[in-house]
Amino acid sequence: MIEIRFHGRGGQGAVTASEFLARAAFLEGNDVQSFPMYGVERRGAPVTAFTRIDSKAVRNKAQIHEPDIVIVMDMALLDAVDVTAGIKPDGKVILNTEKAPDDIDLGVDNPIYTVDASSIAVEHRLGSKVAPIVNTAILGAIVRATGVVDINTLVDVVRNNAPAKKEENAKATKQAYEEVRGEELE
């Protein structure tokens, strides 16, 4: 079982990212589950979303408290949310930032990966400069850092399911896959 936790803000597409990743894993023959932790949502507020992937039936319906992979879509969340809470000892953290992994200190020993998903999203005109929709870019980075699904499966899912700008979203996914930084990339 692979458990993934997304931290984002309302409008960044964290819930959709968790769903696209589940769809890709399902196409590769896994059982999957994708769900948000809902508060009373509004644009800009912290959002948490989850994905579970397993070759066996996924029966656990609790929230994910001990993730294998943590995604941070907005660095400002680090001041508000304990993003690494409960992360497994070998769990990986993927952050949306222009910084290099070595310049990030999360207070944990887990491997860190970074990608400038905001710039990639802006480049492909996904969202606006102030509020880029970074979800499809961050997905490409997740795949390169973790190998949780094949990049081609994911790009197909993005292209087939993005509600608008299908090609731009698919390109953002591929570009982030190439540009993510960190050790032992898949």
């Binding site: 769900f35 948000p36 809902y38």
Partner: peptide
């Protein structure tokens, strides 16, 4: 609520 209503599964 949410645990099924908003959770996506096959």
């Amino acid at each position: 609520a949410f645990i099924l209503s908003h959770t996506k599964e096959p």
